[in-house]
Design a binder for these strands. Structure first.
Lengths: 92, 92, 92, 92
DNA sequence: CCCTGAGGCTTCGTAC
DNA sequence: GTACGAAGCCTCAGGG
C-alpha cells in the first residue's frame, strides 16, 4: 500500500506536469488567436496586414539591437570598472 | 488641437494596433517561458523531458485526429449532396 | 584555359544547380497545366469540376489518414519504450 | 442493359479522369522531391540554400518582367499596326 | 550543428 | 471580377 501511495503521488505529479503544460499551451494558442483577431480588425480598417507585420518585426529587431547595445555597453563598463550602482541608474 | 485631424487619428489607430500586437506577443513569449519552467522543474524531479514532450504530443495528436475524422465526415456529406446522377446530367 | 581554375568550376557548379532547379520547376508548372487541362476536358464532358476536386481530395485525405495512423502507432511504440517505470526511477 | 452500358462508360470516364489527375499530382510531388534533393546536394557542397532560393526567385522575377516588357511591346506594336510576321521574327 | 515543428507568405479556389 | 478563405511551400527559431 505504501508503494501504491508512492506511485499515486508520482502519478499525480506527472498528471500535474502534463496538465499544467497543456493549460499553458491552450493559453498560448488563445493569445495567437487574439493576435490574429487584431490583424483581422486592422485589415477591416483598411490596413495592409503584411506591412503591419513587417513594421512590428522591424521594431522588434530594433529593440533587440538596443538590448545588444546596452549589453555591449555594460560589458565595456565592467571591463573599465565603471559598473554603475542602481542609485546611479536612478539618477538618469 | 482640432487641426490635428484625420492623420493623428489614423496614427493613433496604427499605434494602437501595433502596441496591442506587441503586448500580446510579449504575453505569448511569457507563457512559452512558463512552459519551459515547468519542464525544467519536472527535470529537477527526475522526469525525462523528451518523454514528457512526447506524451503531451501524443495526447494532442489524438485530439486532432478526432477533429479530422469529424471534418472528413462533413466533407463526405457535402460531396454526397453535390454529386449529380448521370440521369440528371442527361436531362440538360 | 588551365588558369580558369577553381572559380570557374564553382561557377559551373552554381550554374548547374540553378538550372537544374529551374528546369524542374518548369516541369512542375507543366504538370500543373496538364492537371488543369484534364479538368477542362472533364468539364467539357459535363462533369462538375468542383465535385471532381472534392472526390480526389477525399481519396487523398483517406490515404493520408491511413499513413498518419501508422505514424501515430510508431510514435506510441517509441514513447512506450522510453517511459521509465517508477521503480526504475527509484533505483537511481 | 443499354443503360448499364452507358453508365459503365461514364464510370470508366470518371475513373479515368480521377486517376489521370492523381497520377499527375504524384508526378508533381515527385518533382518537388527532386528539387528538394538538388538543394540538399547543394547544401552538402557548401552552398547556402536560402541564398540559392533567392537567386532563383530573382531570376524568375526578371524573366517575368521581361515577358511583361515583351507583352507591352507587342501591345504597342499592335496599336501601331506593326505586328511582325513570323518570317520577320526569324530574321532577328 | 542538424532537425523538427511552429509561423508567415503565396497562390489557388470559391462565393458574392 | 473582386475579395475572402483555405492549402501548400518556405522560413526561421528552439531543442536534441
Amino acid at each position: 500500500m505504501a508503494r501504491m501511495g508512492h506511485n499515486s503521488i508520482a502519478a499525480d505529479q506527472l498528471r500535474s506536469i502534463v496538465e499544467r503544460v497543456e493549460r499553458l499551451e491552450e493559453e498560448k494558442a488563445g493569445i495567437a488567436c487574439d493576435i490574429k483577431d487584431v490583424f483581422a480588425e486592422a485589415k477591416g480598417n483598411g490596413y495592409d496586414v503584411k506591412t503591419l507585420r513587417m513594421v512590428i518585426r522591424l521594431r522588434k529587431i530594433s529593440a533587440n539591437d538596443r538590448e545588444e547595445q546596452d549589453h555591449l555597453l555594460d560589458t565595456y563598463k565592467q571591463a573599465l570598472g565603471m559598473i554603475p550602482t542602481f542609485d546611479e541608474e536612478e539618477e538618469k
